[in-house]
Design a protein around this nucleic acid. Structure first.
Lengths: 196, 196, 196, 196
DNA sequence: TATGAATGAGCCTTCATTCAT
DNA sequence: CATGAATGAAGGCTCATTCAT
């Protein structure tokens, strides 16, 4: 057999890497970082332990890659909302997308909250996240201020807390949670001139 | 010499037991269940590993005792609010107490959210908690209905999500979070006839 | 209350000591020396661990006392057979008593065979036992020689092996073993002029 | 570099597995199951503790494998005797092989008797063994009946007890035991028309 | 005489990581 | 690129023994 071409190899690499990350995320999310073994990840990804170490230097590096990817995805999701001019519509879109995110990225969500609660696993992440949260809060505060709302800072903090709270409940209750109804209620409350 | 009296022993046992539970909670909260070793708990409690097993049959039993105590404490906190007649005042008191709880019982709070997110550790807890959540939601829904609010079920779900969301943020940000201001905003929004 | 008299104390001591030894024997016999914990012995004897150490300096000392008692009992059992003059009758009585012993002292029997097979537990015992076996073999050999049997040494070794073999099977099969029938067969074979 | 071929791995596994079983048997036999640590087995086999668990899921599984192998070996040893037509010769061959076995498989022998005496370690084995013993007894009874001997059942039970009794003594006395002489005596007694 | 809290060494087992192929 | 055998440290748990009362 002829050897693989370089681009074939690159493709394989990328695919294997993705498989590992998906497997690790699925397990970390449900069992936690310490509760997930390298063996379990390799099994889930259907590769050997040795190969896994070819792709990632250690368990923590896998976690780092997951977080990196996850945050990037989130940033992408919100990147194009900046062009929305009307602050109320902007807020409505943020509500819509945030809650959709919790629904579609359940695993990442579980992991990310867990990591925030247990800073011991990876203190770095704490810092990185707080920076992200800070900038999001600032954006939201600006929107509320532009909308002429009283106490824009507190309203911003509250709405962001609502995102996490609703996301949390939606994930925990899973099938039983009326996410759409709650989302609508929120949009009704926030997506118009007079805050309810 | 005569042996210790039974009450002397009971006192010793109660004290040591409490120390162990406190130590375990402090560690579980920050490092997670799997991330906390029995050794660490024993060291923190300043007792030997062996003695720890004299008090608890295993790591999981410690967790169970912590959860049991924690839930009992929470139920106590809300037990006497039933007598409040005015639904708005009732809601205001619930807001007040819930958020105070997150602040004062930070460790339990961290642990409890983590457990909900990682059902693998103790599936039992999931069930027990969902029942608790269900009954709380029902109570809250009734209050909103009594208050003549539209969509009482969704409003109830939302407010409970807010409790957890704000609690989460308060805990994560710790010193930087203006919990009092957010609490006031909430009370202003919910503690009066016309929901804002 | 008046203090106990010295003789009352002595009585208590003797009784407690016996209880401990019985409990230990029952457990050692079934679970083995290493498989039996001090805790288990104390529980079985319904006394505290501390008290147990008042009576015996350690686990091994308990074993020693058990062996000592057991061997003494066996020696007693055979002591008065020396007066029997007819070698065939003598042999018949030895068969009778040996096999009865296995039946009545099951626990000691189990323990004693186990110790012989696992000399590591207590090498001392090995020596002590071999001496006992040697003297028993000599006695038996003399009986066979007096009876005019060919190969008295080998016959002696064989008969003693039969004792242990039958005892072993009787114990292992317990209820299902026709010990009486086998005993009769043996007495028929050995208790008469012409060996069968 | 390419990974080891499957057959290379199989060879390694088989070899290491055998080493572990041999080491474990040697130690279990002398010190008993509870008296033998995993550490001791690994040291004896000159592998790491971790590797041992790569091969066996636990201490008990090692024991099971040993028993399984041992019983298979014994069954092999007796499998081809069925063709012998003359019952006396058949019995003589069984005597020969049984006692040779005790001599050559000393370790397994020690272990197997110990396990029978201490059913607590592995109750399953008890059952499995009793079935084996039952079928052996049936075979032997048939032989005695074919040979026209009186009380064939009791004679069968007795001879099997003799196997175990002589084996036991041969093992305990080790170098000092005239196994050949006793074996000859037995063959003289049993290997001919008129039982002695 | 009697109790049971307390200790620490050691045991069984798991797991992140390395290495030979 | 890929495998799985191998290691060693650490984790959960047990247990003989000591000690204060």
């Amino acid at each position: 057999m002829s050897p693989r071409t370089e681009s074939q190899n690159a493709e394989i690499r990328e695919k294997t890497r993705a498989t590992i990350l998906e497997s690790a995320l699925a397990l970390f999310a449900i069992r936690g970082f310490h509760g997930t073994s390298i063996d379990a990840i390799a099994s889930h990804a259907k590769i050997s332990k040795g190969l896994l170490y070819h792709y990632f230097a250690g368990k923590k590096k896998i976690l780092e890659a997951i977080i990196y990817n996850g945050l990037a995805e989130i940033e992408t999701l919100f990147a194009d909302t900046a062009v929305i001019e009307d602050p109320f519509q902007h807020i409505a879109v943020l509500i819509e997308r945030s809650l959709t995110l919790a629904d579609s990225n359940e695993h990442f969500w579980r992991l990310y909250i867990s990591l925030l609660l247990q800073p011991d696993v990876w203190a770095d992440f704490q810092t990185k996240f707080l920076a992200f949260a800070e900038s999001t809060t600032d954006l939201m505060e600006r929107l509320f201020r532009d909308a002429g709302v009283e106490n824009p800072r507190e309203e911003a903090l509250l709405l962001l807390a609502i995102f996490d709270g609703v996301g949390l409940h939606a994930i925990i209750n899973r099938d039983g949670y009326p996410l759409a109804a709650v989302k609508n209620l929120l949009i009704k409350k926030y997506g118009q001139k007079r805050l309810l």
